[in-house]
């Protein structure tokens, strides 16, 4: 883990009416780090993602990217700084061919900047990106209308769209939900590859077995509060985590 943290989140707070969705949550993410975020339903995981990516404005707290304050900026500005996300409910353009979904991030000024002032052939770049997504069983997938593809493919298409921004921080909101075992198995190495190349990944996931295999650290949320953070082994051993997931204190034999 080298030097200055890439993403710093400090004491984020958000209340929706009577519900304290996120309360004083803070953490750090370094280059090439893989952070898992777990917690029961309604524990504020997705709100945390929305707060970091600017879709929801925080009541209090700060988000810093490389030391620069990006709290409360517009979602497209934050995405332009290099924080890409996927959505829990995939948000795609279903009446377009799959690869055309990637054209949108490729039209951004961030992409233009990274390509040295030239957009290049966007269609070719989009197809190239999709080639890495593990659709190898059917080479026509990129050209098919997105609405006709199965759910697991759409999830990976959403991932490809986030990666098209060439982000420095990637936030995955339940990427694996609804994906088959083999789809997860083919996506994990891809994430690990990008991670090893320096991409910082924050992954919200309910499928703990797969998550614990790849992450460096795990953060646990419950009722909007961070209850613990540590290595997968530490988190699994924590009494508080068991309590949060099972609701009661249980004696394990």
């Amino acid at each position: 883990m080298n030097g200055e943290p890439l993403l710093q989140v400090r004491d984020l707070r958000k209340r929706f009416g009577g519900v304290q969705a996120v309360f004083d949550v803070g953490f750090e993410l370094r280059r090439g780090e893989f952070l898992g975020v777990i917690g029961p339903n309604g524990s504020g995981k997705t709100t945390l993602v929305n707060l970091i990516t600017g879709f929801v404005k925080p009541d209090a707290g700060q988000v810093l990217l490389k030391g620069r304050n990006i709290t409360g900026k517009m979602p497209y500005t934050i995405a332009g700084f290099g924080i890409a996300r996927t959505f829990q409910m995939v948000r795609l353009f279903y009446n377009l061919p799959a690869y055309k979904n990637l054209i949108i991030p490729l039209c951004s000024s961030r992409f233009k900047k990274l390509r040295g002032g030239r957009y290049g052939e966007r269609d070719d770049v989009a197809i190239e990106l999709l080639d890495d997504m593990g659709f190898e069983r059917d080479s026509l997938v990129p050209y098919k209308v997105a609405g006709s593809l199965p759910h697991g493919y759409l999830k990976r298409l959403d991932l490809a769209r986030a990666l098209a921004l060439r982000p420095e921080v990637l936030i995955l909101d339940e990427l694996f939900s609804g994906m088959s075992m083999s789809e997860v198995a083919s996506t994990l190495p891809l994430l690990e590859k990008f991670n090893q190349e320096g991409l910082a990944i924050m992954m919200i996931e309910h499928r703990l077995k797969e998550l614990f295999r790849v992450v460096d650290r795990v953060m646990v949320l419950n009722f909007g509060i961070k209850i613990t953070e540590g290595s997968p082994a530490e988190v699994m051993a924590s009494e508080e985590v068991k309590k949060a997931y099972l609701g009661i204190q249980v004696e394990l034999e």
Binding site: A79, I104, L165
Partner: peptide, 24 residues
């Protein structure tokens, strides 16, 4: 064109376009 594609996408789902770093 790609420009029109972005425009039509904004109509479909502006949040998804924003996450693509496009100033909608």
């Amino acid at each position: 064109s790609d420009y029109g594609l972005v425009l039509r996408a904004i109509k479909d789902d502006d949040r998804a376009v924003m996450s693509g770093a496009i100033n909608i």
